[in-house]
């Protein structure tokens, strides 16, 4: 293996960390940390977000180690380092395990052990509960797997405050409920790959009309959570305005998908489904950005005393 074969480059190992997923983790973890009612030393805040991102990257590497067999089958994932033959599976496993230990240990030392414990649980949840257990056994895989993606703001909040509170639980719930409609709208126009790999995606096991109904149900359940955050200590009028506009948009999109037949959808190459998928990304990004704006306004003492904080 040393002389003729390809040598893994730094970029190949970096690709194992799933940089695109990591960027979303950096963003939501940073928001969770910054909106917390505790001011943090900038170096410590930066380090906490870095170690949370590293932990997420480590779980990505573990996921790619475990899923190398199905990644080889799906077009979307064939170019990943292991199926492409650029990194050996055992190297990915070693890297994932050591980076997990490093990320959790460093977050514990830098921030606190509540945050580190939550990060360890997140890695375990994504690598073991989701990747090894649920992904291949139930069409609800996305629902449970969404929990892994929902943890980062909670970890960020815990890094700042040392605990868990109603605000961080609501941020968790927001991403948790958002993930199924986000991912299933993608699955509506991507399912060929999943069926070939034998992953029980809902579009394959229960059909697309059922998936459209589920998208609508989850979007409806998501709405009260999104709105409730407006009336916590991290909410406010700016967030509320964004939440109302985005909720209406998402609900309309989901309702539109629910009422589309497969003939119409294939006719325009899933234009509406692609639209809802893109909108769901904007939805999450804009809501968290609105939370950041509220935090900045509080920092400048530009709060509106009459705004009700019910929760």
């Amino acid at each position: 293996m040393t002389d003729q074969s390809y040598d893994a480059e730094f970029g190949d190992f970096f690709a194992l960390l799933k940089p695109r997923v990591m960027s979303l983790v950096v963003f939501t973890a940073a928001v969770g940390l910054l909106v917390a009612p505790v001011s943090m030393n900038p170096v410590l805040a930066f380090s906490a977000v870095l170690f949370i991102a590293l932990g997420a990257g480590a779980s990505g590497a573990l996921n790619m180690w475990w899923d190398a067999d199905i990644d080889q089958i799906m077009k979307r994932t064939q170019g990943r380092p292991i199926p492409a033959g650029r990194v050996t599976p055992s190297n990915a496993l070693i890297m994932g395990l050591w980076l997990s230990v490093l990320a959790v240990g460093m977050l514990g030392l830098t921030s606190n052990w509540v945050a580190a414990g939550l990060l360890a649980f997140t890695i375990f949840f994504y690598a073991v509960v989701y990747s090894m257990w649920l992904k291949r056994s139930t069409p609800q895989n996305i629902v449970i797997g969404g929990a892994a993606g929902a943890f980062p703001p909670m970890v960020g909040w815990a890094a700042a405050t040392g605990g868990v509170s109603v605000e961080s639980v609501l941020m968790f719930s927001l991403i948790f409920m958002w993930t199924p409609p986000h991912f299933w709208s993608l699955a509506l126009f991507m399912n060929h790959d999943y069926s070939a790999a034998g992953v029980p995606m809902m579009t394959v096991t229960h059909g697309k009309p059922y998936t459209r109904k589920q998208i609508l149900i989850y979007t409806v359940l998501l709405t009260p959570i999104t709105l409730a955050i407006a009336f916590t200590s991290i909410g406010g009028p700016v967030y509320f305005a964004a939440a109302v506009i985005l909720s209406v948009g998402f609900l309309r999109g989901a309702w539109g998908l629910f009422n589309r037949s497969e003939d119409i959808a294939t006719g325009d190459d899933y234009a509406a489904e692609r639209g809802v998928f893109k909108f769901s990304l904007l939805y999450l990004f804009a809501l968290f950005f609105a939370l950041l704006i509220e935090a900045a306004l509080r920092g400048l003492n530009l709060t509106w005393g009459a705004w009700p904080v019910w929760i």
Binding site: N41, V43, L44, S47, L50, L109, T110
Partner: peptide, 13 residues
């Protein structure tokens, strides 16, 4: 360098 910066920050805090 990051570990060093963290150490200083924690000591100052």
């Amino acid at each position: 360098l990051l570990v060093f910066a963290i150490t200083i920050s924690k000591m100052v805090g």
